[in-house]
């Protein structure tokens, strides 16, 4: 028995500890750094892991900085709008692909799948030109449209998978009971699809919040999203690592918390297609 326990240390506990360390150390080190006063980070005579005197000064500075708050607000606006527009467009499409058999369906689905396999730059340049010619650069709209290029095909796939798992018999029964297709969808299918819908919404929100390339090309000072704001911060505060790590943490924290809440939904949705395949 004890040899079994002993061998479990090597086959299980040590590998698990190593992997968790690999995954988590960057976060831990970032949090520790963000709590150190700048003098301790750059000018201390001796390297020390924990702060001598922990401080929240970097966080307080950031949360009172106007450009930082504008960036957070812009990100929230763009991410929310992208998720909502995507949902409306892709839910009807996913319903169509899951409940009807029609000519060309296979090719429609395949082309949706192919779309997010192209390099982002391929779309970035023509969209930039189009938005520039329409005088739409530096607006939320241009960025939201750019994100829809990824988010619509992605969520059509995710939602089609979810809807396929809801038995058709439920709908048929509702229709026999006097519903039409639309009311059957609203009353029967949609409530059952809610976990999938939430997963799609949150995934798109995370994607839009995190995205950097389009954001750096399509936004100006007033519409900058938070990753771009921080990128310009790096230029200004190049040696202030307490401030920089804190800014990273504030950017990532809302996303990490959101993810923790819907983890299970999201994982089920993302992996279901792959396992069947």
């Amino acid at each position: 028995m004890s040899t079994k326990k002993f061998s479990k240390v090597f086959t299980f506990y040590i590998p698990l500890a190593l992997i968790l360390a690999f995954i988590l150390l960057p976060y831990i080190w970032s949090v520790i750094t963000s709590l150190k006063p700048t003098v301790e980070i750059m000018y201390a005579d001796k390297f020390h892991v924990l702060p001598y005197k922990a401080t929240l000064e970097h966080y307080i500075y950031l949360l009172s900085e106007k450009s930082f708050l504008t960036g957070m607000t812009n990100s929230a606006i763009v991410a929310l709008s992208t998720s909502l527009i995507t949902l409306v467009v892709s839910l009807t499409a996913a319903y169509s692909c899951s409940r009807f058999n029609f000519r060309g369906k296979k090719y429609v689905l395949i082309s949706f799948l192919m779309i997010h396999m192209f390099p982002p730059v391929l779309l970035l340049m023509p969209l930039f030109t189009i938005m520039k010619n329409l005088h739409l650069l530096n607006t939320y709209f241009s960025l939201i449209m750019a994100y829809c290029t990824f988010s619509i095909p992605f969520s059509i796939w995710l939602l089609t998978g979810y809807l396929n798992d809801i038995p058709k018999e439920l709908e048929e029964a509702a229709i026999v009971d006097g519903c039409n297709r639309f009311t059957a969808f609203i009353k029967i299918i949609f409530p059952l699809a809610v976990p999938g819908v939430i997963a799609a919404l949150v995934y798109i929100f995370i994607y839009a919040w995190n995205e950097f390339l389009f954001a750096t090309m399509f936004t100006g000072e007033a519409t900058r999203t938070i990753p771009v704001t921080i990128y310009s911060f790096i230029g200004e505060h190049v040696i202030d690592w307490g401030l920089l790590t804190a800014s990273g943490i504030i950017t990532g924290l809302p996303i990490i918390i959101l993810f923790m809440f819907i983890q299970k939904n999201l994982i089920a949705g993302l992996t279901s297609g792959a396992v069947k395949g």
């Binding site: 976060y27 080190w29 995370i206 950097f212 921080i230 690592w241 800014s247 990490i256």
Partner: peptide
């Protein structure tokens, strides 16, 4: 916990690792 790096914004990831 293991899944967090995947949803962490690239800007945060790059700041942590550059540091």
């Amino acid at each position: 916990l293991v899944l967090i790096p995947w949803i962490t914004p690239s800007i945060m990831t790059s700041l942590m690792w550059v540091w």
